[in-house]
Design a binder for these strands. Structure first.
Length: 295
DNA sequence: CGCCAGGTTAGAG
DNA sequence: CTCTAACATGGC
């Protein structure tokens, strides 16, 4: 049997395979990728077909193998996808120079050197995930996502395991809100989820329609959709488009991290958060994920 | 049991 | 523009 050659990506110096893999391992309920000790597997769609990728680390490089349908493998697509997923095109050395002069970030970037913004290349998935995470603890958000993906997503099987794809907007727009209540969605989350799916299915918004826009323009487009507020928009713009200055200003976990790191009596006000973040200008997204990591 | 969780919206002031 | 109530339920 013919084996397809692996795809390799040279890694930047500021990259920790272990730390980023640990992030992907955050919840056992995650169905959209599966992490073993040294590898992560994920299905993506290329030319309409599911392609199961396995990413491993190999001597300073990332090695990608396609486990199913090697015929449909498109090496450039795969390489670009993984570069985006692991945010490999960001030059972290610039951020680290800024962070090392900052008393709060300095120890964090030392301790978590090479930790990156693992992205959500799929904007629809990114937004729905943010909606699921609104106002509830992350563990429960993972429970909701697991039920949602199991019920409405598709999967490929390989070696006896299932590898899921996130439900498409076309499928989600036809769900009735009542059908999501048994999964323990609140009525509000159910409505937002379906509403966002409609916006995607009707072409009102897409990753392509936002590409090239400034952060504020993109944010304003997203916020027009009911269910997407400032927090959700910025979260998705940070995770999906990796705007370096996008960050969820109102985020409770960020406030908690700031309170601890800056030894404040109470949670910071929005004005205080804005003021603090002025020193991270241009790198707000990375400052945020390192602050989150501090928790 | 109580408090809090990676918020958003509609409505009032 | 800012403030508030309602939403809704698991995790700890």
């Amino acid at each position: 049997m013919l084996t397809t050659p692996s795809v390799f990506i040279d890694l930047p110096k500021e990259f920790s395979y272990e730390l980023n893999l640990a992030f992907l391992r955050r919840s056992p309920k995650e169905l959209l990728h599966q992490v073993t000790e040294h590898a992560v597997r994920k299905v993506i769609v290329i030319n309409g077909g599911p392609v199961l990728l396995e990413v491993t680390s190999d001597a300073g490089r990332l090695r990608i193998d396609v486990l199913n349908k090697p015929a449909s493998r498109d090496a450039d697509f795969v390489r670009n996808y993984v570069r985006e997923w692991f945010d490999l095109d960001t030059d972290l050395s610039v951020f680290y120079r800024l962070a090392r002069r900052d008393e709060v970030l300095a120890p964090l970037v030392k301790k978590f050197h090479g930790y990156r913004i693992m992205s959500h290349p799929d904007l629809f998935e990114s937004l729905i995930w943010a909606v699921l995470g609104q106002q509830i603890n992350v563990q429960f958000a993972y429970t909701l996502k697991q039920r949602f993906v199991e019920k409405y997503g598709t999967f490929v099987e390989h070696g006896g395991a299932k590898y899921f794809l996130f439900p498409t907007p076309e499928v989600v727009m036809n769900i009735k809100a009542e059908d999501l209540l048994p999964l323990q969605f609140s009525r509000q989350k159910a409505k937002y989820t379906i509403n966002i799916a409609e916006a995607f299915a009707n072409g009102i918004v897409s990753k392509e329609s936002l590409r090239g826009k400034s952060l504020l323009e993109a944010r304003d487009e997203l916020v027009k959709i009911k269910g997407i507020g400032n927090w959700t928009a910025n979260y998705a713009l940070m995770r999906t488009f990796r705007y370096p200055d996008a960050f969820p200003l109102e985020d409770v976990a960020l406030h908690k991290a700031l309170q601890i790191q800056f030894r404040m009596r109470a949670r910071p006000t929005l004005d205080r958060v804005k003021k603090i973040f002025r020193r991270y200008k241009g790198w707000e997204a990375y400052a945020t994920i390192y602050l989150w990591k501090s928790l």
